[in-house]
Design a binder for these strands. Sequence first.
DNA 1: CGCATGCTTGGTACATTATTGCATTTGGTA
DNA 2: TACCAAATGCAATAATGTACCAAGCATGCG
Lengths: 157, 157
Amino acid sequence: MRDANEFKKTKLDQLHALCRAKGLPLTVQRTVIMDALAARTDHPTADEIYEEVKPLLTGVSRTTVYRVLEAFVAHGLVQKIGSSAAKAHFDADVARHHHLECIRCGAISDIPHCEAYDIPLPSSEGNRHQVLDYAIHFRGVCARCRFAGQDPPEESA
Amino acid sequence: MRDANEFKKTKLDQLHALCRAKGLPLTVQRTVIMDALAARTDHPTADEIYEEVKPLLTGVSRTTVYRVLEAFVAHGLVQKIGSSAAKAHFDADVARHHHLECIRCGAISDIPHCEAYDIPLPSSEGNRHQVLDYAIHFRGVCARCRFAGQDPPEESA
DNA sequence: CGCATGCTTGGTACATTATTGCATTTGGTA
DNA sequence: TACCAAATGCAATAATGTACCAAGCATGCG
């Protein structure tokens, strides 16, 4: 289990370094939004982050949250995760790791790493697409939902 | 490579069987939408399907396309795929298989099956989440984009 | 074959999520 | 402190998805 405070500090440092390197202003908004995102182990949507930082950044606009998160993604500080619900989720952890999407509540949680998930990347040889990275998208029932109700029906292929 | 016509026929038969079994009306809309989706190897959004069936189903409403696709998903005839863009993509192939999302154009394409991608499903033992299935989400450059422009920069971990 | 029934459809309105344009403010630097 | 570039806030707009209800159609029965 990674240390939450250390991780957050690392991300804030990265943000700081990035702004320095590219001559971008290190605004309060960017700091607080990164802080909020890095503190979470779930993978919030832009609006969820907005709700979270609203009390901390009085008068912050939803647009800014969307824009800042997109900027983080563009600079590789944060990754955007797709889910079957039509919303973008954000993840401050850009290292290769895998996710579980709950079929009940739609929440996305991290799956602890396991060597069995290390698969070879398809090579770019030949004349096809080029693969750069991958993430495994598990589908199932999250711990919270599993113990909140009865077990789900067996998968019927 | 699966035979396109045969696959389409199978899906239409499945639709037919499902409606029979559940006493649901087999409407032209459902037939044409399934036909359109099963004919495609890419993974269109609801609106893309809507554009495609509009000429075939004069007067069809966007609502119906969304509703029918959701119904297919609910009955397990079709799966919904998430992408980092905030839109739902639909796939008539519900067997376990993997996808490539193009970082240039956002298109989602199938990745041919490979045994190396067969990973063990995390067991439900212990007191955690329960995993039912998985799909590998590859990230890279699709064949079309790769040969339309210069190669992408190397991944900087 | 024609009718009754229930589910589906079309259409509008609405909700949610995300993006754009522009005036103002702020962070960074000298 | 003052300047400048970039970010922010705000409002409007786009894109995507959902709810509601009257009208239509598929299915099954007489």
